[in-house]
């Protein structure tokens, strides 16, 4: 295209709208504070000064789902907690993402019993699973970086979500 080269001479940068929207989404993705068990301690540690999630624009753990973009499910989800989790997910405004942190949230982990939901993907669509029991703060940040890559790859308007299992 001739347009870009002409605009480039004028000191104007052109970009695709999708890229700009995804850039905005990845750089201010406020998480919902959803600590359920010991993974929450590592999540707090990831927020603290040694790992400092605010480097990724995630310094605010919102208490209200209405202000959150990302739900970090940190810990085991009991059957009694499951409807609450789904309700909080439904209350989050679009676009929204879910990160399943740790073994228990991802597939029940060591708690293979009737009381624990065997994977939070039974109730909400999960974008990234982070393994570890609990994962180190670095492992959580690695999961978040992978989620950011996934968001950058996706189209802002087309939902490329997989259907909920079960």
């Amino acid at each position: 295209m001739g347009l870009e080269s002409k605009l480039g001479n004028m000191g104007v940068v052109t970009a695709r709208l999708e890229d700009i929207v995804n850039w905005g989404r990845t750089n201010a993705m406020w998480p919902l504070g959803f600590g359920l068990a010991c993974c929450a301690i590592e999540m707090m540690s990831a927020q603290a000064s040694h790992y400092d999630l605010s480097r990724f624009g995630m310094e605010l753990m919102r208490a209200s789902p209405r202000q959150a973009d990302l739900m970090i499910v940190a810990g085991r989800v009991s059957r009694k907690m499951a409807p609450v989790l789904r309700r909080l997910y439904d209350q989050m405004p679009d676009p929204k993402w879910v990160l399943s942190m740790g073994d228990c949230a991802s597939c029940g982990g060591v708690f293979n019993n009737y009381a624990i939901v065997q994977g939070v993907d039974e109730i909400v669509p999960v974008d990234v699973y982070v393994a570890g029991c609990p994962p180190r703060p670095e492992a959580l940040i690695d999961g978040i970086v992978k989620l950011h890559e996934k968001v950058r790859r996706s189209h802002p308007l087309k939902g490329d979500r997989e259907p909920i299992r079960g």
Binding site: D121, V128, V130, A131, G132, E138, A139, D142, K146
Partner: peptide
Amino acid sequence: VYELAADKR
């Protein structure tokens, strides 16, 4: 190695 994250189980 602790970096174990994926978007599929």
